[in-house]
Amino acid sequence: MSIPNIITLCRILLVPVIVWAIASNEMEIAFAVFVVAGVSDAVDGFLAKRFNMSSELGALLDPLADKALLVSIYVSLGIWGAIPRWLVILVVSRDIMIVGAVMISWVFGKPIPMKPLMVSKLNTVAQVSFAALVLGALAFGFEPAPYDLFLMGAVTVLTLLSVSLYLVEWMRHMSTIEPSR
């Protein structure tokens, strides 16, 4: 168990804290925990790369922690009414489709290599930025317009583009399966 993995596990443990904070209308706490989670993500990545502490466990835990945090925040803010529910459904559905495709490929004995696409990285930046803006606006009482509309548009377009590219790649990968006789 390396230091970056411990930091990542701590980030996973922050998920229920941030959900509680949003549900309890403690937006300052939610924003602060979100910032701590973001800093911890940067720190664990830096340590893993700089000090050669990368591991298979870390390669699995880090994206899991990121997705758990983002999905939880989007769902919580959607339930709270701070972001449109259609956007929550879009963001969560993308992740479900990708995980489902990976699971199906494993079931067929044709695991697909997990390599994040550039559009997916941009999507994550847009999702994080939008969540930070909404949480910051709720915590500190400022009007996020017009930046919220711009970021919401970016999240929408990048989410749709990302899932489309992943599904095309997955279908290409899965089309090499031989039919059973």
Rank of each mutant, 00 (worst) to 15 (best):
M1I: 05
N5H: 06
I6W: 06
T8I: 13
L9Q: 08
C10H: 04
L14Q: 11
V15H: 08
V15I: 04
P16N: 02
V17G: 01
I18L: 15
W20N: 07
A21L: 04
A23V: 08
N25C: 07
E26H: 10
E28G: 13
I29D: 11
A37M: 09
V39K: 03
S40A: 15
S40N: 09
D41R: 00
D41L: 07
G45Q: 06
L47G: 03
R50C: 11
F51N: 01
F51Y: 12
F51W: 12
L61P: 04
P63F: 01
L64M: 11
A65R: 01
L69Y: 11
L69S: 12
I73E: 14
S76Q: 03
L77I: 13
I79F: 12
A82V: 10
R85L: 12
W86V: 05
V91M: 04
V92E: 03
R94C: 04
A101E: 03
M103H: 10
W106C: 13
V107Q: 08
P113H: 12
M114C: 12
K115P: 13
S120T: 05
S120N: 04
N123Q: 12
V125S: 12
V125Y: 10
A126I: 14
A126V: 13
S129M: 15
F130D: 11
F130Q: 09
A131T: 15
L133N: 07
V134M: 02
G136P: 07
A137N: 08
P144F: 10
P144M: 11
T156A: 10
V163R: 01
S164G: 03
L167C: 06
E169V: 02
S175P: 07
E178K: 03
